[in-house]
Amino acid sequence: MPIAPKANDEYAHLALMDKTKYVRMLKREIRGKARYFVQLIQEGYPPKKRNRKVANDETKRVGIDIGSSTIAFCSENTVELRELAPECNADFPKLRRIQRAMDRSKRSTNTHNFNKDGTFKKGRLEWNYSNTYKKLRKKRKELYRKIAVQRKISHEKLANDILALGSDIRVETMRFQSLQKRTKKTTRNRNNGKINSKKRFGKSIANHAPAMLLTIIDRKLSYQGRSLKKIDTYATKASQFNHKTGKYTKKQITERWNDFEKHLIQRDLYSAFLIGNTNETLNSVDVDLCNAKWYNFVQLHNREIARLKQSPSKILRWFVA
């Protein structure tokens, strides 16, 4: 099949100059219909886009403090706190309505698989699905597909913005799978005595996909022969360390600020600052380097806090409330 890219598509022409190693057939279900695509696997690395800014200087550091729904990053000229995939606005009420309708349909057509109290029967069960259930399932699948595509695009753009700041990118080692698990301890609310929910960050991680962003950054760095530097979380303890006193202080999740007498510093932005100023061994903070960059960081930090307070995002405003 002849391949004829558009005449003004410089990127496609440059990519097709490399040797084609494989031709892959992809099947995708879009809006309920099966569609097939041909994907060419080229040799080497993808060509650079002329309008993309990439910092090739290894001396420019970028510290990243990534959470379940936000990311803070700090460099010489930029200090920012952003929401992960803000364009990925899923219609969760609509999804919940679809899932409730699916559950009602499944129960009405499979009454033999449920006990009188509504719980599932034990053992191997055979399920029958109505045409209404199948239509709802396709509708739900299409909604999740759109969310996944939009999230991927958003992460690719954010990764490009971070790579434009520096090529020495450092981040804490995070185990997102452990944050998704429910807590084992049973606790009670001090005010009303009710049992607290055991849910943690499963839904937030599923919606914002922080691990995907780190994978994309690492892949883009590999084009330059570099990789993402992961510091030792347990040795560094960036969220607890104070470079002025050299002491570690545990904080609650709700504590968002660090008090430095003259300055109040946002916790996530400060962690990104410390991560970016770690030693080459990646297991401790370089206090001398932090002191040398402290004044510049405070100025950039205050500018970012003023921006966040005017942000339309409720999530970002909560982090600086």
Rank of each mutant, 00 (worst) to 15 (best):
R96A: 13
N113S: 08
P86R: 08
M102P: 03
K106V: 00
F114M: 11
N115G: 07
K116N: 13
Q99V: 02
D103V: 02
A101N: 10
F120A: 05
C88S: 15
E83G: 05
T109A: 07
R100S: 09
E80V: 14
N113Q: 05
F120G: 00
N89K: 15
L81T: 03
H112L: 05
M102T: 04
A90V: 13
D91I: 11
F92A: 01
L81G: 04
K116Y: 07
K116W: 02
R107M: 06
R100I: 00
D91N: 15
N110Y: 05
F92G: 00
E83T: 07
T119G: 12
H112G: 00
N115W: 05
R107C: 03
D117K: 07
K94V: 00
F92H: 06
N115Y: 08
I98V: 08
F114A: 11
G118V: 11
E80Q: 15
D117M: 08
T111M: 08
R96C: 06
D91F: 11
R82S: 02
N115C: 09
M102A: 03
E80W: 05
R100Y: 04
F114H: 11
I98G: 00
Q99M: 12
N110L: 07
K94Q: 08
T119M: 10
A90D: 06
S105R: 07
L81V: 02
S108E: 15
D103L: 12
P86A: 09
N113P: 01
Q99F: 00
L84M: 13
E80M: 14
K121T: 01
